[in-house]
């Protein structure tokens, strides 16, 4: 479905991404995880074509991503970023349906799809007439998801979609996301720095560090057979402080 072969990217003297090769499993969710600056967001931006790679190729459905087919391929991708990136001057409805109406979808087609998306993302229909400034942070991310899913993309790319949300709203949306991914039947690539989120949402995890892929596999593989010490260190560092406290209390 989506594959990269030897993709790399430098910003001046800094290597953001060393040559990487990954085959993303069709219809499954892959999490790109790692600390800040590990190259996970760079990789995602390369996949959307927001920045060009220095070398290597990106293949989408067997087709190589090039300057001339970029726009067409983008319409088969959905892209969600941390703050939503919603257009502040358009209502939720217009944000979601802008591209569809540019592609000459009829009003009834658009309406029908909006209904599907509202129930999928559990977004109240009357919220569609609100402007982004009138919505809560969680609602904005749901609108952003609907916008990404509007054209029924085969690939959904999310860059820390829950990063800016309160813990309760975050837990809520996290639960819903799993259902949304399943229902969308898309190949999902999710960038996060939260191992719990990755383990909960993703079928497969790609752990990155300093522009390189450290290990790729199921959470259980990373947990039981870490490729090096860093993997264990990264997982342990993210264990909930609450959990640690309980363990200590039992020991006493």
């Amino acid at each position: 479905m989506l594959a990269i072969h030897g993709i790399s990217k430098c910003y001046g003297q800094t290597v953001a991404l060393h040559p990487a090769t990954i085959s993303f499993i069709a219809g499954k969710t892959t999490a790109l995880i790692g600390p800040s600056g590990c190259g996970k967001s760079t990789l995602l931006r390369l996949l959307v074509g927001l920045i060009p790679p220095d070398q290597g190729i990106i293949q989408f459905d067997g087709e190589e991503l090039r300057e001339d087919n970029l726009q067409a391929i983008r319409r088969r991708l959905g892209y969600v970023i941390q703050e939503g990136g919603l257009f502040p001057h358009l209502t939720a409805r217009d944000n979601i349906s802008l591209m569809a109406s540019r592609l000459d979808w009829s009003d009834s087609q658009i309406d029908e799809r909006l209904s599907e998306l509202c129930s999928l993302t559990k977004f109240p229909r009357d919220g569609l007439n609100r402007f982004p400034a009138e919505l809560s942070g969680g609602q904005r991310q749901r609108v952003s998801l609907m916008r990404a899913l509007m054209l029924r993309p085969k690939v959904l790319l999310l860059d820390e979609p829950l990063g800016a949300l309160d813990p309760l709203i975050r837990a809520d949306l996290q639960r819903d996301l799993r259902e949304i991914f399943r229902a969308a039947e898309a190949t999902v690539i999710l960038v996060t720095h939260d191992m719990g989120e990755a383990a909960y949402l993703a079928d497969s995890i790609v752990l990155m560090r300093a522009g390189k892929i450290v290990q790729q596999g199921l959470f259980q593989d990373l947990w039981r057979q870490p490729a090096d010490e860093y993997v264990t260190e990264f997982i342990n560092a993210q264990r909930s402080p609450l959990e640690t406290m309980t363990v200590e209390g039992e020991a006493q």
Partner: peptide
């Protein structure tokens, strides 16, 4: 972020200018 969202949607550059 807004500009990138418009690009990532697949809008042509004229549409990005006109609608966003």
């Amino acid at each position: 972020a807004v500009r990138e969202s418009a690009t990532a949607l697949g809008l042509t550059s004229f549409d990005q200018l006109r609608f966003v």
